[in-house]
Amino acid sequence: MLRNKSNEALVALLLVAPFVAIYGLIFIYPTIKLFIVSFQDAPIIGNGPFVGFENYTRLWGDRRFNTAFWNTAYFVALTVIPGTLVAFAIALGINRLKGRLQALVLALFFLPYILPVSVVYLIWDWTLNFQFGIAMHLFDLLGLERVSIFKNTTWFMPAVAFVTIWWTCGFSILLFLAGLRAIPAEIYEAAALDNSSVWTTFRKLTWPLMWPITALVLMIQLILQLKIFDQVYLFSIGGRPNDNLVLVYYVFQRAFQYDQGGRAGAAAVVLFLIVIIVSVLNFQLTRLSKGRG
């Protein structure tokens, strides 16, 4: 039977229309509004006079923005690649387990991922708090001097990075396990017949076959950690928040503490462009590596 193409197109448009409307309302319109506000001397609510690129030029002379930029880069370096490698190593170990033991160990590693950030904060504050933390009592038993980890600029970012890896690696482990289970068992059987060592099998078979999953995990982690805010905000309570600034925290301060919507918008646009550029570069590098493979 001949189909009425115009009717099919109309039905397709009607089905897609709700999604397009919601997407435009909660993403497209706010993004356009963000770019407009970034060129204005505007408060957080309302418009202001047009100032051109002044908000952007003032960013690079702002000591707090420079601190936020480099803290974000430092945090990404501490979490993205180390977190991916940790998740991959754990997934390799879990993949060797069988039955209920495998399910139990996987559940234990995945459990932190479903916790809200407030619970994660309380758990690690109870563990590492200078006055009553469990770890501090262990320091006392070992005769070591207590360290105020979350109030010390040197230790703050590494500690928050460690907590973040503990909190988020469960999802990455699931992705790696899915990739490992998708590798045909016949490949490893053939490698065993050739007397391939464990390291050779991993380097020649497992790692190349797992590279697409690894690239996906790297991209997800990179985008997530560039937008880090919750952990830094919570663990900075009672400490020195201006020394622990990250880009989203800087935007929060400018927008909601100083009512400088224009400058906050400019910082948000810079972060938005960084995320896009890094994502595109990561995608292109992934394509190039697959082409060479």
Score class of each variant (00 low, 15 high):
Asn7Ile: 07
Thr206Glu: 10
Phe35Asp: 01
Glu54Trp: 08
Lys98His: 12
Gly265Ile: 04
Ser172Trp: 05
Gly238Val: 03
Leu281Gly: 09
Ile26Phe: 15
Leu216Met: 05
Gly46Cys: 01
Met136Val: 09
Leu108Lys: 08
Asn282Thr: 00
Asp230Trp: 00
Pro208Gly: 05
Gly99Val: 05
Arg263Trp: 01
Gly261Glu: 00
Gly61Met: 06
Pro158Tyr: 03
Leu92His: 09
Trp126Glu: 11
Ile22Thr: 12
Ala182Asn: 12
Leu226Phe: 15
Arg58Asn: 14
Ile44Gln: 02
Gln40Asn: 01
Ile276Phe: 01
Ala267Lys: 06
Leu180Ile: 04
Phe171Lys: 05
Gln260Thr: 00
Phe235Thr: 03
Val120Asp: 01
Ala182Tyr: 06
Gly99Phe: 07
Ile123Pro: 02
Lys151Asp: 15
Thr72Met: 07
Tyr113Trp: 14
Glu54Arg: 14
Leu245Met: 12
Phe283His: 06
Leu78Gln: 13
Thr153Phe: 00
Asp243Leu: 07
Tyr188Cys: 10
Tyr250Phe: 15
Gly238Ala: 00
Asn47Gln: 10
Met157Thr: 00
Thr154Leu: 15
Glu186Pro: 00
Gly61Asn: 07
Ser279Ala: 14
Thr67Asn: 09
Thr67Phe: 03
Tyr29His: 08
Ala190Tyr: 07
Trp124Arg: 02
Tyr188His: 12
Pro112Gly: 02
Phe235Gly: 01
Ile223His: 10
Trp155Tyr: 14
Ala161Asn: 07
Tyr29Cys: 02
Thr84Glu: 08
Ala178Leu: 06
Ile26Val: 15
Gly239His: 07
Phe171Tyr: 13
Ala103Arg: 11
Phe256Ala: 02
Leu285Tyr: 13
Gln231Asn: 07
Val76Leu: 11
Glu186Arg: 15
Phe176Arg: 09
Phe171Ala: 11
Trp167Ser: 03
Ile94Met: 02
Pro18Trp: 05
Gly83Asn: 07
Val119Lys: 10
Ala17Asp: 01
Lys5Val: 01
Leu92Val: 10
Val246Ser: 04
Val105Ala: 11
Phe65Arg: 04
Phe139Tyr: 11
Gly265Arg: 08
Arg254Leu: 13
Ile26Ala: 03
Glu8Val: 04
Ala191Asn: 08
Tyr74Glu: 08
Ala107Lys: 01
Trp126Tyr: 13
Asn244Gln: 07
Leu281Trp: 04
Lys5Leu: 01
Ile149Asp: 00
Ile149Ala: 02
Pro116Asn: 03
Phe176Pro: 10
Glu145Ala: 12
Gly143Val: 06
Ala161Phe: 00
Met136Gly: 01
Val217Ala: 03
Asn71Cys: 10
Arg203Glu: 12
Ile237Val: 12
Tyr249Cys: 00
Trp124Lys: 00
Phe252Cys: 04
Lys227Ala: 12
Ala68Glu: 06
Phe88Met: 15
Gly170Asp: 08
Ala21Trp: 13
Phe139Glu: 08
Leu128Trp: 05
Gln253Val: 13
Leu104Glu: 06
Ile165Thr: 05
Leu224His: 06
Ser38Met: 00
Ala89Ser: 15
Lys98Phe: 11
